[in-house]
């Protein structure tokens, strides 16, 4: 009982499926990001600056935003939020500062990765400026005060009154080896 398709044709079709699924495995990478962007389920914020449009500030709601900092394993920098917790009204522009110091004798480049919890709030957290948009170089012993300006979208669902923004600082020196360590706009004191 042949299917009416020759063996060779069928093999070719099946091999196409195999390569298609290999490609699909890689397509899952952007699909995953798009899906998380749209639904906000990953707690990832946009990594480009939002433009602040002064609109109505919703004084009737007060949202507590908490800032947590941590450094990834093997990242020796000191990293602190100057403002640990802030109460904001939706639509209001605020700026908070983060302090970093490179205590080592060598230059480092860092990348901060934000994570918002509950993840849904990430969709409504608009950052007009953030140190996390770029890699941050710091020479040996240098320190910097890095700002983050944000406003909370008034569309934030009613049931969210509190959310946490956590920044994790990663050491990316190896892959950003050519960066000028004094080319940091937030630099306070250059080391060495």
């Amino acid at each position: 009982m042949a299917s009416g398709v020759t063996n060779n044709t069928m093999v070719i079709r099946l091999v196409v499926i195999v390569f298609g699924m290999f490609g699909f495995g890689f397509a899952l990478v952007p699909l995953y990001d798009v899906f998380c962007d749209v639904t906000g389920i990953n707690g990832k914020t946009a990594n480009t600056a939002a433009v602040y449009q002064p609109s109505t500030i919703d004084k009737s709601r007060t949202i507590t935003v908490e800032f947590l900092t941590r450094t990834h394993t093997g990242m020796p920098w000191e990293f602190q939020a100057k403002t640990k917790r802030i109460k904001v009204h939706p639509g209001e522009l605020n700026t908070v500062q983060f302090y970093v110091r490179n205590p080592m004798r060598t230059d480092y480049v860092a990348q901060a990765i934000p994570s918002v919890s509950p993840g849904q709030a990430a969709l409504y957290l608009n950052k007009t400026e953030c140190f996390c948009f770029n890699q941050q170089p710091l020479s040996a012993g240098g320190e910097a005060l890095m700002p983050m300006s944000f406003y909370v979208d008034p569309q934030l669902p009613e049931d969210i009154t509190f959310f946490t923004v956590q920044y994790t600082l990663f050491d990316v020196t190896a892959r950003a080896a050519t960066m000028d360590v004094n080319d940091n706009p937030y630099l306070q004191r250059s080391g060495g």
């Binding site: 290999f22 890689f26 990348q111 990765i113 892959r175």
Partner: peptide
Amino acid sequence: VMPVLAGAVTMVLTDKFFGTSFFDAAG
């Protein structure tokens, strides 16, 4: 699904040896 597994191990290989960042938050 075996091709998807092949893709996953390939991503691990390039992340580990060729500097890609499929699974590395820093990148």
